[in-house]
């Protein structure tokens, strides 16, 4: 465990909790892509099946459980409790266009052809593109509320910190996992355009809206 990973994990946790709190306190999930949240729930479920097979640390186990619970709580708020506020007309990204190719790729490119390993690989690939419905929704409506922007910034920050963590681990321990690194870089690149908008607009107190 190094400081980059710890801060990355905490940034990830902050993003998840911030989104939950926003939906809960505004009693609304307007502007949030339910599809992205469903995909994240699927990501955590398929990745953390090793909760049943291996124990790494109390930190590791508790973070996994918290991520899974928060992901399902978010999905519940969007699709059940505050369903009336869900903006499904704008959440039109076809999630199957992500899940099917990613599933195929997980079968073809993985560390080991076993069920748990394929599901882990699937979750890594899926996480790298799971934010696309949310980014698509923002590009469709042309704007995002500032909390939604902070959420995306924390998620992107988590990815960027993980890349620094991998560089650090490569030089200090000779550790690297090519699947995680390639997928992680793809995921971080997806946030780049958003980062630019965030820094130029949200930080200067404006709502994030796309240039017409």
């Amino acid at each position: 465990m190094n400081v980059f990973r710890l801060v990355g994990d905490l940034s990830h946790l902050l993003a998840i909790i911030m989104l939950l709190k926003k939906i809960w306190s505004s009693r609304s999930c307007a502007g949030i892509s339910g599809k992205s949240q469903l995909l994240f729930a699927l990501v955590f479920t398929t990745r953390y099946l090793d909760l049943f097979t291996s124990f790494i640390s109390v930190y590791n186990t508790s973070m996994k459980v918290i991520y899974i619970l928060c992901a399902y709580a978010t999905v519940y708020l969007i699709y059940v409790k505050f369903k009336a506020t869900y903006d499904h007309n704008h959440d039109t990204f076809r999630a199957e266009f992500l899940v099917v190719p990613v599933g195929g790729l997980a079968f073809l490119v993985n560390h080991d052809f076993t069920p748990l390993e394929i599901l882990w690989t699937f979750s890594i690939y899926l996480e790298s593109v799971a934010i696309m419905p949310q980014l698509f929704m923002i590009s469709k409506t042309g704007e995002a509320e500032s909390i939604t922007s902070h959420y995306l910034f924390c998620l992107g920050g988590y990815r960027a910190l993980y890349i620094i963590n991998w560089l650090y681990r490569f030089y200090s321990e000779g550790f690297f996992d090519l699947i995680a690194i390639v997928a992680g870089c793809v995921q971080t690149i997806l946030y780049c355009d958003f980062f630019y908008l965030y820094i130029t607009k949200v930080i200067y107190g404006q709502k994030l809206s796309l240039p017409a």
Partner: peptide, 10 residues
């Protein structure tokens, strides 16, 4: 190269 079971990252 990491063994598949050694997944310590989240």
């Amino acid at each position: 190269y990491r063994q598949p079971h050694e997944k310590d990252e989240l």
